[in-house]
C-alpha cells in the first residue's frame, strides 16, 4: 500500500504539459478547472517562499560582499572584506560569546527544570491541569510583555530586590540588568522562567506516551521511585529531549525581541547583545547594511549547521 501511495503522481501530469503533441482529450484533462486552482495556489506558495526565503538569502549573501552603507543603494563589490572585518571586530566576538554563554545557561536550565516539573506532575497530582496551565502561562505571553514584566522585576527598586529585602536578604540585592557582569544571567533566568513550562509540557507528553505496560513491567522487576525514572522513563524520552534541545537551541540563536526590550537594545554596553541584536543594530541603527549582512549570513550558517542534520534525522525515519 505504501508503494501505491507514493505512486499517485501529479508530477506526471506536469510532464504532460511539456509535451507538445497532446491530444485534445488530454488537454481538457490537465486544464480542468478543478485541478488548476489547487495547483495554482500551491505553486504560488512555492514561488513566494522561494522569493522571500531563498532568494533573499542569496541576495543577503550578495549584499554582504559589497561596501553598501546608508539608505541609498550605491555600492561596489568588495568580496570577502566584510567577513575579514568581522573576524577582527571585537563587537562580533563579544556578541558570539554572549550567544554562547546565554545558550550554555539557558538550554540546560530549561531542560532540567522542565523535566523536573514534568516528573513532579507525573506523580498523580490533584488538580494537575491547574498546575500545568499555570506553568505554561508564561510561554503563552508575548516576549514584549514578559520583557516589561521582567524589567519591572529586575530594576533597582523592582520586585526582586524588594522581596530580598522582605526576607532580610538585602545583601543579595543587585543591579540585575544594569550590571554588565550579571545582566546576561538575569536575561537567561527570565527566559528560563518563560520556557520551562513549555519544556515541561513536551516531557510530560512524552512520559505519558510510554506504554503503561513498560512501567508496570519495570515496577514488577523492582524498579521504583528514582530508579524508575533514571532507568526506564528518561531513556525512553530521548527523542523529546532532542526535540526540546533543538527548539531551545534555535530560539537562543534567534532570540531578539525579549532581550531588545528588557535590556534596552542589548545593554548595558554590549553586555547582553547576542548576535541577532548586534546584526539589527549594525544594520538599522548604524546603517552598515553590508557589514550586518555578513554577520547575518554567519548566523544563518550556524543555524543551518544545526537544523539540517536535525531535519534529516527527523524525516528520514518516516
Amino acid at each position: 500500500m505504501e508503494q501505491v501511495r507514493n505512486d499517485i503522481d501529479i508530477i506526471e501530469d506536469f510532464k504532460f504539459e511539456e509535451k507538445r503533441k497532446i491530444s485534445k482529450e488530454i488537454r481538457k484533462n490537465i486544464f480542468s478547472r478543478d485541478k488548476l486552482i489547487i495547483r495554482l495556489i500551491f505553486i504560488t506558495c512555492c514561488i513566494l517562499l522561494a522569493y522571500f526565503i531563498y532568494y533573499f538569502i542569496v541576495w543577503n549573501i550578495f549584499v554582504s560582499m559589497t561596501d553598501w552603507v546608508g539608505l541609498i543603494q550605491t555600492y561596489d563589490f568588495v568580496g570577502l572584506e566584510n567577513y575579514f572585518r568581522m573576524v577582527n571586530d571585537p563587537i562580533f566576538w563579544i556578541s558570539l560569546t554572549n550567544n554562547l554563554v546565554f545558550m550554555l545557561v539557558f538550554i540546560p536550565s530549561s531542560i532540567i527544570i522542565g523535566l523536573f516539573l514534568a516528573i513532579l506532575l507525573d506523580q498523580k497530582i490533584r488538580k494537575e491541569g491547574v498546575f500545568r496551565t499555570i506553568y505554561l502561562l508564561p510561554y503563552a505571553l508575548s516576549f514584549i510583555v514578559t520583557a516589561y514584566l521582567w524589567q519591572w522585576m529586575f530594576i533597582e527598586d523592582g520586585v526582586i530586590n524588594f522581596i530580598l529585602d522582605m526576607f532580610g536578604l538585602g545583601f543579595l540585592k543587585m543591579s540585575w540588568i544594569s550590571d554588565p557582569n550579571i545582566a546576561l544571567f538575569s536575561v537567561s533566568f527570565a527566559l528560563v522562567w518563560q520556557f520551562s513550562g513549555y519544556i515541561m509540557l513536551i516531557f510530560l507528553a512524552a512520559i505519558r506516551t510510554i506504554p503503561k505496560s513498560h512501567i508496570m513491567a519495570a515496577q514488577i522487576d523492582g524498579a521504583s521511585g528514582f530508579k524508575l525514572y533514571t532507568r526506564v522513563i528518561i531513556p525512553q524520552i530521548k527523542t523529546s529531549t532532542f526535540t526540546a534541545f533543538v527548539i531551545l537551541m534555535i530560539f537562543s540563536l534567534k532570540a531578539f525581541d525579549f532581550i531588545w526590550i528588557l535590556t534596552d537594545e542589548g545593554g548595558p554596553g554590549w553586555a547582553t547583545a547576542i548576535l541577532p541584536i548586534t546584526i539589527f543594530k549594525v544594520a538599522f541603527n548604524s546603517n552598515y547594511f553590508a557589514y550586518s549582512s555578513a554577520m547575518a549570513t554567519t548566523l544563518l550558517l550556524i543555524i543551518m549547521v544545526i537544523i539540517i542534520p536535525y531535519l534529516y534525522i527527523t524525516y528520514r525515519k518516516r
Binding site: I53, Y55, N60, V63, K254, P276, S292, L299, L300
Partner: peptide, 16 residues
C-alpha cells in the same frame, strides 16, 4: 525546503 523556513533567522533576510 518549506520546513527550513520555520527555522530561518529573520535577521538574515531583513535587509532584502
Amino acid at each position: 525546503l518549506f520546513t527550513i523556513g520555520i527555522f530561518l533567522p529573520y535577521q538574515s533576510i531583513l535587509v532584502p
